[in-house]
Structure formats: structure tokens, C-alpha cells
């Protein structure tokens, strides 16, 4: 299985290097005060969302899955490797977001907790995309699954805008922050718990699939 994770890393090697260069650039810009930390938090979300899906597209192009099924690993191990790769991306992105928040709180006196909450929210959206799109990629293939990725990004935004317009969020500011933060931190937790469910669904899809 480590071989399959290594395969994803090697295949996406160039893309990952480019993304890291972007992150370093945004980080330097944030340190010197030219860019906001929002650039970094938005970019870590892109990493978490895009890289696992890109790996599907590369696999599809090479018809890799048919070959992977001939290896002595079993179908579940092939799925597990993809989820572990996605988790690896989450860990790298989270480590960078954490590092940036702490560094900027020291150098630019940025509010560390607020930035961390933004980073966490950003990672959560990325992870939600992983939860939903990985089974869809197995079921539909990367081409047909792509519109769902856009839906995952835009539907929460549209819902939030609608909720704000309807005035449902008006009383949010009156809630004590001691209540809001634990509530908000539950969201990433729920999304993280969705990962095993998503994995189970993907396994079921792949077990039924013919290659």
C-alpha cells in the first residue's frame, strides 16, 4: 500500500513542488505585510481539495486502476492508499497553516486564534470535498465527478449568503464567543468523522466495480 501512496506522490511531484513554492511566496508576502494570511488559508484548502482529485485524473489517464487490481493488494488497499494520500495532504496543509499562523502572530502581531479558526475552516471545506468527491470519483470517474466539486465549493457559499440575506445570521454576533468557538470546532470534527464513512462507501463502490 505504501507503494501506491508513493506512486501518487511521485506522479504529483511537480505539482506539489509548484504548490509549495506558491505557499512559500504567500508566506513571505504575508510576513512582509504585502499579502493577507487569507492567501495562505485559501491555498491550503486548494491543496487538500485538488491534489487527491488530480491523482484520480492521472490514474484515469494511465488506466492505472486496472493495473493496480492485478497487484497482490486487494481492492480495499487500493482505496485505502488513496485516502491515506488525501490525509497526508491534509496533514501537510494543516502543518503549513499552523506554522504560518504562529509565525505571523509573532512577526506581524496577527490574531493567532482567529487565523487558526480561519485556517481550520478552510481545511474543513477541503476535507469535505475529499469526503464527497473520492467516492464520486470511484463511481463516476474524475471527469464526471468534477461538477460535484464545484457544487461543494459554491453551495455552502450560496447558503451562507442566503442565510445572511434572510437575517438568520443577525443574532450570531450576540452569541458569546465561548459558545461559538466550540460550535465551530465541531464542524471540522464532523467532517473528519465523515472520512471513514466516505472510505466505506468508496470500498463498496470499488468492490462492485469491473475493471
Amino acid at each position: 500500500m505504501t507503494g501506491l501512496i508513493l506512486k501518487d506522490v511521485l506522479v504529483l511531484n511537480k505539482t506539489m513542488k509548484t504548490y509549495i513554492l506558491f505557499l512559500i511566496f504567500y508566506f513571505v508576502m504575508a510576513i512582509v505585510g504585502l499579502f493577507s494570511i487569507a492567501f495562505i488559508t485559501a491555498f491550503v484548502q486548494i491543496i487538500v481539495m485538488i491534489l487527491p482529485i488530480s491523482s484520480f485524473a492521472y490514474d484515469e489517464q494511465a488506466k492505472w486502476n486496472r493495473y493496480a487490481m492485478t497487484l497482490p493488494l486487494g481492492r480495499r488497499a487500493v482505496v485505502r492508499a488513496k485516502y491515506l494520500f488525501a490525509l497526508l495532504m491534509v496533514l501537510i496543509a494543516a502543518a503549513f497553516a499552523l506554522l504560518s499562523c504562529v509565525a505571523l502572530s509573532i512577526t506581524a502581531a496577527e490574531p493567532v486564534w482567529e487565523n487558526l479558526a480561519t485556517g481550520l475552516a478552510s481545511l474543513s471545506v477541503g476535507l469535505l470535498a475529499v469526503d464527497v468527491t473520492l467516492p464520486l470519483n470511484y463511481k463516476l470517474g474524475p471527469e464526471r465527478a468534477r461538477p460535484y466539486l464545484y457544487a461543494i465549493i459554491f453551495i455552502p457559499v450560496i447558503l451562507m449568503v442566503l442565510a445572511a440575506r434572510m437575517g438568520w445570521l443577525d443574532h450570531l454576533e450576540q452569541l458569546p464567543s465561548s459558545l461559538i468557538l466550540p460550535l465551530l470546532s465541531l464542524i471540522p470534527l464532523v467532517i473528519l468523522l465523515g472520512l471513514p464513512v466516505s472510505y466505506w462507501i468508496s470500498c463498496r463502490i470499488v468492490e462492485q466495480k469491473e475493471f
Binding site: 500500500m1 505504501t2 507503494g3 501506491l4 508513493l6 506512486k7 511521485l10 506522479v11 511531484n13 511537480k14 492521472y58 490514474d59 489517464q61 494511465a62 492505472w64 497487484l71 497482490p72 493488494l73
Partner: peptide, 16 residues
């Protein structure tokens, strides 16, 4: 995959 090299293929299959 097109962007792999023979040495990468060896590195991928060794743990398999």
C-alpha cells in the same frame, strides 16, 4: 504514468 521513470516504477512496486 507518463511522468514516471523506470526507477520510480521499481520504487512503487518494491513495497507491493
Amino acid at each position: 504514468h507518463d511522468n514516471l521513470r523506470p526507477r520510480d516504477v521499481g520504487a512503487i512496486l518494491a513495497p507491493v
